[in-house]
Design a protein around this nucleic acid. Structure first.
Lengths: 136, 136
DNA sequence: TATTATATGCAATCTAATTGCAAATGAGAA
DNA sequence: TTCTCATTTGCAATTAGATTGCATATAATA
């Protein structure tokens, strides 16, 4: 793991606890976004409410953002540096209809559409559905 | 009302009932998308399960599509003709952070981003957050 | 008008999210 | 190092929204 979870927490002024380190490490290790249930599965001793509140905290501190894909459960993914600089950012995500994984495509920017008169955009969230490279 | 709900149901091969006519009319009248709760409010005598199943049917028959915005409840909106021709379409939606209404911007197309190698897209769903013209 | 598949209403269930509260713990002060 | 106190945690309970089962009612067509 290149990026140190503990250090990242300190940088973000988040109190360091075992739970938080392990939950953050789950995200650092994963190439796709995770739901509360995903985290419960990888850390079976952890309490759902604690995971939930940890994710809330991480989101407030702009360490994570949420994604609503076609699955029932909300997913969470690490914010890139771009996210962290600017809270009003563009988020393309790819949801695989087969394995149901959702990938955060922060490096793939897209041009924003025009809007009707007097509509002011602050944030764009794009969900692309399809089939990922693993499931072809 | 320009478009006739009853006729629309017939075209789509959906059995005509009082419930379905009134629910469909709610959508024809509305300039924004509706949740189950919204419909319950405007048709207080209607049963939630019936509304739910009606919306399922409408979605299956490509009369409606669903939108997951920042609200908890799922929203539904009429499909445009474009939707109906091609099931793999592009959906820009605008969610107002103040009044919480979500508008379907079918006329506002956007260019699709490039994807990583071997990722095949079939559907794009864009949620734009911001402030609508009514709330400026 | 009779028949039959489909739609409805009601109550119950499910799933995921969310909260309350007392006990445990982290981080800075002494 | 130990003390102090705000913060975090674990457990149980609750909420919100979605979804289902089943008996009855109804639409469409013969």
């Amino acid at each position: 793991m290149k990026i140190n979870a503990q250090q990242l927490l300190k940088e973000k002024n988040i109190r360091i606890t075992a739970n938080r380190i392990l939950i953050l490490e789950s995200f650092l290790k994963s190439s796709y976004s995770l739901s509360i249930a995903d985290i419960e599965e990888s850390l079976p001793w952890a309490d759902r409410a604690t995971i939930f509140r940890t994710l809330m905290t991480f989101k407030e501190k702009a360490l994570l953002h949420t994604i609503k894909d076609d699955d029932k459960a909300l997913k969470y993914a690490l914010c890139s540096d771009a996210c962290q600089v600017n809270h009003h950012h563009i988020h393309p995500h790819f949801h695989c209809d087969i394995c149901s994984k959702t990938y955060c495509l922060t490096q793939y920017e897209f041009p924003t559409p025009d809007l009707p008169e007097n509509f002011k955009a602050s944030n764009y969230s794009l969900i692309i559905n399809g089939i990922c490279s693993n499931c072809q």
